[in-house]
Simulated assay, not measured.
Amino acid sequence: MSDLLRQQQLAFAAAVTHGAPVDQLLAGSPDGGPPLISAYRHAYGARLNEALRDNFEILARAMGDEAFDALATAYRRAWPSTVPSIRWFGHRLAEFMVAQVEQDSGLVPHPAFVDLARMDWALRSAFDAADAPVIVRDALAALAPEQFAALRFTPHPSVQLLPLDWAIEAAWRALREHDADSGDEPDLPEPRAEAHQLLVWRRGLETRWRSLDPHEAVLLQAMQRGENFAALCEHAAASSGDADQAVTIAATALTQWLEDELLSALT
């Protein structure tokens, strides 16, 4: 009996989630009508759409209800949920949106929406990142000057460098701060193409972000690769074209990282 029950449960799940036939699974209605499962299918799809809306809150606000629901429905049909927690449903949404832009399907009205999705997901991921200690600026005071060249850094687990193709930060902030119940539309700047890096991390229980200039982005990438302070100075000299100021540039970046609580260890 347990095997039969298990088979029925799997069949019912497939009928709800993937539209499998139910003729041999459910009895018809008393008046001889076909078995009805549409309510369960609708509820399942609606719940996943709401999970996407929660995971991509700012993207949903930017696109509007109708456009976002169309995108969410197309995504869950292309990439059905495969993980137990709906928190992680949507990890391929930005990738799916890129494909829709390339296909000109109409589901993504502007490519800048892809970057909004990337930013939403990065911030959610930073919030859920593992806990780790943070190193403050005073930690440098215990080091002898000759130790700095070999110094290496361990970033906090929440730290992410996010490549963006559009300058979306002002629009993201406006949408975040807008009162959705006001009935007014937020005043958003026009999308502007600009390839750059966005720094995302968590400080305490608060997620944070800031746009990076190219010089700091180069240094952060080197830091994440495990390169030491001497190597960071070399990168600073190359990116700025000013070897005399390389140490100052690298030291200024390091001070900022410590103030932002981006680092978990100094080695």
Rank of each mutant, 00 (worst) to 15 (best):
G90C: 15
G90L: 13
L93E: 00
A94W: 10
A94V: 03
E95N: 13
F96T: 10
M97P: 03
M97A: 05
V98F: 02
A99H: 01
Q100S: 08
Q100A: 12
H110N: 15
P111N: 03
P111S: 02
P111K: 01
A112S: 14
A112L: 09
A112D: 12
F113H: 11
F113D: 03
F113I: 06
F113G: 03
V114E: 12
A117E: 11
R118K: 11
R118L: 10
A122Y: 07
A122K: 06
L123F: 00
S125G: 14
S125V: 06
F127H: 12
D128Y: 15
D128F: 09
D128E: 10
A129T: 09
D131N: 01
A132E: 03
A132N: 11
P133A: 13
P133G: 08
P133D: 10
P133H: 05
P133W: 02
V134D: 14
V134S: 14
V134P: 02
I135H: 01
V136Q: 08
R137V: 05
R137G: 00
R137S: 14
D138H: 05
A142Q: 12
A142I: 07
L143S: 03
L143K: 06
A144V: 04
A144L: 12
P145E: 02
P145Q: 04
P145Y: 00
A149D: 08
A150I: 09
A150V: 05
L151P: 04
R152I: 05
R152H: 02
R152G: 14
T154Q: 15
T154L: 11
T154Y: 07
H156K: 02
P157K: 00
S158M: 09
V159E: 11
Q160V: 08
L164D: 00
D165N: 15
A167Q: 05
E169M: 07
E169T: 10
E169L: 14
A170R: 06
A170D: 13
A171D: 11
A171Y: 10
W172N: 05
W172M: 00
R173A: 13
L175M: 07
R176M: 12
E177N: 14
E177A: 06
E177H: 06
E177Q: 15
H178F: 06
H178N: 00
A180W: 12
A180T: 14
A180P: 00
D181L: 13
D181S: 09
G183K: 03
D187H: 12
L188Q: 08
P189S: 05
E190P: 04
P191W: 02
E194G: 04
E194M: 02
H196W: 04
Q197L: 11
L198G: 01
L198K: 00
L199C: 08
L199V: 01
W201A: 01
W201V: 01
W201G: 03
R203G: 09
G204H: 02
L205G: 09
E206L: 12
E206T: 09
W209D: 00
R210Q: 14
S211T: 02
P214G: 14
